[in-house]
Nucleic acid binder design. Structure first.
Lengths: 217, 217
DNA sequence: CATCATTTTTGACTGCAGTCAGTTTATGCG
DNA sequence: CGCATAAACTGACTGCAGTCAAAAATGATG
């Protein structure tokens, strides 16, 4: 085991100052950071299935028991690792949308970029998707909701921009649009169809969904 | 795989009894039946998590190794158990639809009854849903496709009945309708909202999806 | 500093899904 | 039959996620 030793190395010349947020809490944050970094590194390099929790614990320089104080399960670790990144990605996608475009085009742009993100690592995305579908730890439901809210918020804005007068059901349509995307994502990652096929289906479905609003004006 | 089937010649004059499908094959079927029955019994009585593969093997009166010759994984067993039942349920639902009803009403009837089915055992449905989303064994993809095709076929018929002239995108709309149902099912089983809320959302989404066809007449 | 209380860490341990080398059973053929 | 070969079966075994009783670290008090 390479994990032994070097535990209390930074004990020398301990700076007793700046304990404002409480030393305990700070250490906890550092440890969480270390865990997340170690998990990300290993998951990306070896894949989810081929990474053991022992490896992650060793890389984070903690015992296996400690690891499970910070994450409820191995899947939980994956959510910890990618939730923030996905949130940032989603926000970046929304921030860089083309101004002059129909709502349907904007939606396709958003979903296309999200698919790009998932295409980077299909295995991790598949496991992540499984967790989003049926969260194993109830504590993750909150985090997942946060992500969903961010996505829905952006989508609702896009949908509403195409129907200036009656924005009452913009949220409903946005939810529908996301449901259609989600189902195609599942079809693709689950192996039913390839990515191109799914994106084409999605485009057609969105066109139909939005057509009533478009022909409204 | 079963590709080596029916190599036994019925011209042989050995066993006097009916050896039409081959004794080996028959035994195999019996064994598969026993496994499925044992698994169903235990899953329903104890739940998925609290049932061990050892218990299932013992109940089916076979060794643990044999069990995994018939199912690739514990989740696989669940699909084996419930696929046929779900297929039959879906067909029964389609067979008993009210004649005089709008397509939207028919859709809600179908999805409502499907939800009833899942409501019977939420834990098993959740695991099953996870397998439908990302099948762990690629061999199940075919079985799942069969189920999906049955569902899509019925939905397409319902949708097409509401738009007599242009049935070209009935399949597309049916797929959209199912995607909306699927997403609400996930929201419900995943713990985001309760069942009533999800079914209401679904009704509104379907109303919007079908409204263009309805106002067509 | 000594003592105690509380929080945090730990790694040996448990239980289970899934495997595999070895065994048994079925089938083909002279 | 008897032998050979292939298929089916088996349960002891492996590896890993997750647990828990004990230990270490931290902090508080006099």
């Amino acid at each position: 085991m390479a994990g032994t030793a070097v535990r209390k190395s930074e004990a020398g010349s301990e700076t007793p100052a700046d304990t404002a947020p409480g030393r305990r809490e700070r250490n906890k944050l550092q440890k969480r950071q270390r865990i997340v970094m170690a998990a990300r590194e290993l998951f990306q390099r070896q894949g989810f299935a081929d990474t053991t929790t022992q490896q992650i614990a060793a890389a984070a320089d903690i015992g296996t028991g400690t690891l499970f104080l910070y994450a409820k399960s191995k899947e939980d670790l994956l959510v910890m690792v990618f939730k923030d990144e996905m949130l940032a990605t989603v926000r970046a996608i929304y921030a860089s949308l083309p101004e002059a475009a129909t709502p349907a085009e904007k939606l396709m742009s958003v979903f296309g970029q999200m698919a790009d993100y998932h295409a980077r690592d299909a295995e991790l995305s598949r496991v992540l998707l499984r967790e989003l579908v049926t969260p194993s730890s109830s504590e993750r439901i909150g985090e997942i909701s946060e992500l969903m809210d961010a996505i829905f918020g952006g989508l609702t804005g896009i949908v509403a921009s195409g129907m200036p007068d009656e924005g009452g059901n913009a949220a409903l349509i946005a939810r529908s649009a996301f449901a259609l995307y989600y189902f195609q994502l599942i079809s693709w990652l689950g192996g039913a169809f390839d990515r191109t096929r799914c994106m084409h289906l999605l485009r057609d479905q969105l066109a139909h969904l939005m057509s009533r609003e478009a022909s409204h004006d």
